[in-house]
Amino acid sequence: MRERQLRSRDLLRGDLEGEELERYVEEKVVMTNFEKLLGWARSNSMFPLTFGLACCAIEAPISIVTARYDLARFGAEALRASPRQADLIILSGRVSIKMAPVVRRLYDQMLEPKWVMAMGACSSSAGMFSNYAVVQGADKFMPVDIYVPGCPPRPEAVLYGFTKLQRKIQGNPDPGWRQRYNALGTEEWARGGPRSEPRGGDLEAYERARELTGA
């Protein structure tokens, strides 16, 4: 400790030379490029939006800011109510057809850079609610950065998703199982494919409903 103090004093006086100087600089000065620095700063100081829709809202944003699953450890303690001041929106809960335009408007009001976490099964893919009233997955109308499965996901799962999002922001995203099992490139778009139209009895029921209601 005393030795370090003396070396710092020498540096300030201009007394360190040559190899000593190089060693000193290596130890004390951090060299990085600006993107990495920016990614590190952004990921560790995110302002989530206080946005809870349904059951997942009790687990996050309420439960993860409480003492046991502290979100403040990751720098995201300051939950902002206004979308203009927030940069992470956690879609915690089912997005119904009445709420979808409101969520989209909130997302549009957020300033760049912004990230979206689809928390729970309902916002990732409508969960168990495959019916007329729930949008089948929030990524039908807004881009989603990370999906956290569960119904509701444990707060630890949300925090794991949060740390994965942090790595993504820092620039080294974690492809997960696709990398482990050598399956990169097997992603596919399921929607819009040949089997995403209603079939059989459902098709007739929809036609009949349209006739009855005159839509």
Partner: peptide
């Protein structure tokens, strides 16, 4: 109506024991 999930309609398409996880999620 902003979190209307159509649970009552979904229940008509499930057998009785499958209805139980649906109705749980009403008042969460």
């Amino acid at each position: 109506g902003y979190v209307h999930t159509g649970i009552e309609k979904s229940c008509e398409a499930q057998s009785y024991w499958k209805v139980i996880p649906f109705v749980e999620r009403m008042d969460y």
